[in-house]
């Protein structure tokens, strides 16, 4: 479904992704963990085309994402190609990034009306269903500032689902939340994984959730995958010394 083919990304002299190779199967749930600055968020940002990669190609659904076919070779994607490919991908952000001047419902309707061109009534209905799915049917007319962090993040999930993406990206979606609000957001994600055919990539610090929910865990260090494996195996018997140290540090902190 997703294939990072030798992808490199640099910020100035800093290499955040260093020739990354990563394949993700359809419907697979992958958790990405690692110390800060290891490049884990960049994986998601590159896939959402928020960051331009410097080298390599990202493939999505059998097609190049960052490039397009021209004759036998590949050239950098233009805006039109990016917009077509992006419709397969949805993303939820650490800081929600809801539109503060729109109600929860309007947040979810915006792309339906402006991207898919649905009639307003139909968009309203679909957005309402999405909000009901994340348990916020009664909050649809509230502005984001009047919602709790957990509620805002659930609206953001509903909004990202509106375009029916095949791949969902979750970028530290509980990091900005008070601990007692994390459960409601993780619950929504868990439900999503059970009920829908979705490929999911999540960057997370919630090791318990990663262990229970993910099919596979990738441990990132210095722009590369230092270790990966099936979730239970990875957490129960980490092989690398670096991985063990990281997990110990996280467990001690948690």
């Amino acid at each position: 479904m997703v294939h990072f083919d030798h992808v490199t990304k640099r910020y100035g002299s800093l290499t955040v992704l260093d020739g990354l190779d990563l394949r993700i199967a359809p419907n697979e749930k992958v958790a990405i963990i690692g110390p800060s600055g290891s490049g884990k968020t960049t994986v998601l940002r590159a896939l959402m085309t928020l960051d331009r990669i410097d080298d390599g190609v990202i493939w999505v659904d059998g097609e190049p994402l960052t490039h397009m076919r021209r004759g036998d070779g590949l050239v950098r994607a233009d805006g039109k190609h990016l917009r077509r490919m992006r419709s397969k991908i949805g993303m939820v952000f650490q800081h929600f990034n809801l539109f503060p001047h729109m109600t929860a419902l309007k947040n979810c309707m915006e792309a339906l009306v402006r991207v898919l061109g649905l009639p307003v009534e139909e968009a309203r209905q679909r957005a309402g269903e999405l909000l009901a799915m994340v348990g916020l049917a009664d909050k649809q007319d509230e502005y984001p500032a009047r919602l709790s962090g957990g509620q805002q993040q659930r609206v953001a999930i509903a909004r990202a689902l509106a375009l029916r993406p095949k791949i969902m990206l979750f970028d530290e979606v509980t990091s900005a939340l008070d601990p007692e609000l994390c459960a409601e957001v993780l619950g929504v994600i868990r439900e999503l994984g059970r009920a829908h055919q979705l490929t999911m990539l999540m960057v997370t610090h919630q090791m318990g959730f990663a262990r229970e929910f993910a099919d596979r865990v990738c441990f990132f260090d210095s722009g590369r995958i230092a270790e990966q494996g099936p979730a239970r195996e990875f957490f129960d018997a980490p092989r690398g010394e670096r991985t063990q140290r990281f997990l110990r540090a996280v467990m001690d902190a948690g």
Binding site: M48, R83, I89, H95, F99, E110, A111, A162
Partner: peptide, 23 residues
């Protein structure tokens, strides 16, 4: 306007002109 607003608009695939006008 926070950078995250631009990024959310890209993630929702909103065209640049719509992003400017509506968001």
């Amino acid at each position: 306007v926070p950078k995250g607003q631009w990024e959310a608009a890209v993630a929702l695939n909103l065209p640049p002109w719509v992003t400017m006008k509506r968001i």
